[in-house]
Design a binder for these strands. Structure first.
Lengths: 125, 125
DNA sequence: CTACTATATTAGAATATGCTTATATTAGCA
DNA sequence: TGCTAATATAAGCATATTCTAATATAGTAG
């Protein structure tokens, strides 16, 4: 698929205050919302604890409860709960309540991102 | 492509110390190196300044010198240099020297990651 | 009701991050 | 050589992050 049209970046636009500089071309501005939204996802995943949780949830056959994740990553219950909350508000996991347990699983976004990283490693470019 | 075989996660394995717990299945362990390597990339991208730099470099027609990026993101020369260094050591940008200028462009990894994010937004799942 | 279990939330301390300022390096030119 | 421009690096401060410990909430069982 060609991505030039769907690209959310506005091209060829006045940069702010450096119109006639010497060294190279204008640098187009980037959609502010795009940056903020993507960084939200990236920074939620860009942490050892949270990324390991995502990986473990994905590797499990079914959805996973907090108590088992807690044992798996070796942190306090509170730390795991906070990490999962952050992943939840970033839209990377969903949760389902069953009795007093909460079962977490990945969203499609998270699945796709993890797959992309696996692909990068596989292509070893 | 089926990803079940290339998946770098070791499945169905003793979790550490919670063998007979009640609530749910075992949580497989995750390759430590995988987590560390991916988080390296994710945390490098997961910052407003650095992600905006990546977006701007990508949006430019050719590779971009530090001075123009500096003007574009509105931070000090030092801040931009540090951000680009971080992106460089994460393997997200390459740099080429021409005279006293340094021209930065994206690596294939960075291209692919940004494309993935655009795709997530486009599919609006 | 009480007691217990699973999870969430709050508070606070230790550490990490990201900027600015100042200084170092490197290239080009007189 | 010395001067200037482009970039990199170092030091330090302000703020953000991420834990732990303590407490709150909700659900289950007696």
């Amino acid at each position: 698929m060609s991505r030039d049209e769907t690209d959310p970046i506005s091209r060829a636009e006045q940069s702010e205050g450096t119109a006639g500089t010497a060294c190279c071309a204008e640098v187009p501005k980037v959609e502010e919302d795009t940056v903020v939204a993507d960084v939200q996802l990236l920074s939620a995943l860009g942490n050892d604890t949270r990324y390991e949780l995502v990986r473990r949830i994905r590797a499990a056959e079914s959805d996973v409860c907090v108590c088992d994740l807690e044992a798996a990553v070796g942190l306090s219950q509170s730390a795991v709960s906070q990490a999962l909350s952050r992943l939840y508000s970033a839209g990377l996991v969903t949760r389902r309540k069953e009795g007093s347990w909460r079962y977490y699983s990945l969203t499609d976004d998270a699945e796709q991102l993890v797959e992309t990283f696996d692909a990068l490693r596989t292509d070893d470019e």
